[in-house]
Computed example of a mutant assay.
Amino acid sequence: MSDRVARLRSLVGEGRSDAPGRLVDVLGRLGLAGYGVVHLLVAWLALEVAFGVPDAPADAEGAIGTIARTPGGLLALGLAAVGLFAFALWQVSAAAVGFRWVHGGDRIRKRVGAVAKAIAMSALAILIADYLLDLGSTGGTTAQSVAAGVLALPAGRVLLALGAGTILVIAGAMTYTGMRRTFMGDLDVRHLGPAARQAIELVGSAGHLARALALGVIGFLAGTAALFADPARAGGLDAALRTLSGTALGSSLLVVVAAGFAAFGLFCLADAATRRA
């Protein structure tokens, strides 16, 4: 095991980032850019929901379907899936031996965040792969079916409540990241001018806060499903955005959140170009 870690440190030390090798670095950046494109499409679909377009699925599955229907879309999705898996591998490497420029608690927090990114990227890559293998079949797992499966387990309500609490904690961490702009510490922006840095900070902050709000609603929905032992109360991103649309602020709040998701998509593109961990 120590030899493997030493080899991983050597690979990381040789590159421009914490990716274990040049190929993973390049593919990971492509995957991160694809992640940004998905968020831009989710923002567009959320705007459609805000303006009353029926059956607009404002989530990753809806974005994947939109890409698939474009010329060359299936090929682009295949490349995106490979890139997302590569980025996940990159983040696992960063969690193991990366973030050499920070120490102590900061390094631990960043390594935990890298694990979370690896999970999120892998989940999207699996969703894309499932879509490609099923050729667009809509028989995927929904938040309601996951909640129903958890509730069917012994102490299912407790387990679902713990899951909801975890989601809310992650949303809180995203809020902290967005407000403190700690994501800038993962980027190499030394060669950029002040205006470019400020633009990246702005879209990054807005994007993280918008995603935190949406994730917080997902956690709330999961919590209510646990409280009432009703899986129909659970919901994913599409349900969360529609819930926001149904608040007193109505579609105006959803437009703001959609703008935040678009900002996060743009941030991902900048992130892909400048990320070092």
Results as ranks from 00 to 15, higher is better:
G265F: 04
M1R: 13
P57A: 03
L266A: 12
R111Q: 14
Q198W: 13
V97M: 06
A125M: 03
A80N: 04
A81D: 01
T247K: 02
I170H: 09
V97G: 01
H39S: 08
Y35G: 13
H208M: 09
R111F: 06
L30S: 08
F183W: 08
D188N: 14
V217T: 14
G223D: 09
S205R: 07
G52V: 09
G156C: 03
E61L: 11
A56W: 03
A210Q: 07
V5T: 15
T142C: 01
V97T: 09
S93D: 02
A240V: 02
F220R: 14
L253K: 03
A96Y: 10
A68E: 09
R111D: 07
A161D: 05
L75Q: 11
G28K: 11
G113N: 09
G15W: 07
D188M: 09
L266V: 15
V203N: 04
V189E: 10
R242Y: 00
D134G: 15
A214Q: 12
G98M: 09
L227F: 12
A226L: 05
R276H: 11
V37H: 13
V92L: 14
P20R: 08
A46R: 01
R111C: 04
S10Q: 13
V217K: 12
A258E: 03
L244C: 05
G149D: 05
L132N: 11
D25E: 15
L11N: 01
R29E: 03
A80G: 11
A46I: 05
L237P: 01
P71W: 05
A171C: 05
G136D: 00
T175N: 06
R197Q: 14
R22Y: 09
V169N: 04
I128Q: 06
A120S: 14
